[in-house]
């Protein structure tokens, strides 16, 4: 069983509120190593210098959106094994299908509870301790 404290998470969202909410949720779960970025491009900058094993990213962002970031992560050999959970405003089937084509691991619909956040992460990594 993976320990939540082993998770190194990158939160990507152009909205400070959402970043703060996800961060607070992750802390509740027991994740301590959290970085954040305001858009896909900033996220890549973080990823190229900072080991992460989970990206939780918004879909709609300026500069480089969530789908673009996912695509970049899956293309880059040094990043491709990082888990990716897409945050969406609604359960948009078409969008999620595209995200799945590009190799998303899971999705999370806003607004979410801490329990849902945990559940979505556990579906990817298995039960967290």
């Amino acid at each position: 069983m993976p320990a939540a404290s082993d998770l190194k998470v990158l939160i990507v969202d152009d909205q400070q509120t959402i970043r703060a909410l996800v961060r607070a949720g992750l802390k509740d779960i027991g994740v301590t190593d959290i970085e954040d970025a305001v858009d896909g491009e900033a996220a890549l900058n973080v990823l190229l210098s900072n080991r992460r094993n989970l990206i939780i990213s918004d879909f709609n962002m300026p500069n480089l959106d969530g789908l673009g970031l996912l695509r970049a992560v899956r293309i880059a050999p040094q990043l491709k094994a990082i888990a990716f959970i897409m945050l969406t405003g609604r359960a948009d089937t078409a969008l999620l299908q595209r995200a799945q084509q590009f190799g998303v691991n899971n999705y999370l619909v806003k607004p979410f509870t801490v329990a849902t956040l945990r559940e979505k992460i556990e579906q990817v990594f298995g039960p967290l301790t």
């Binding site: 082993d6 094994a81 888990a83 691991n105 899971n106 990594f125 298995g126």
Partner: peptide, 9 residues
């Protein structure tokens, strides 16, 4: 869902 282990990353 596409599962992974933390060790993968």
């Amino acid at each position: 869902v596409v599962p992974l282990s933390i060790g993968d990353a």
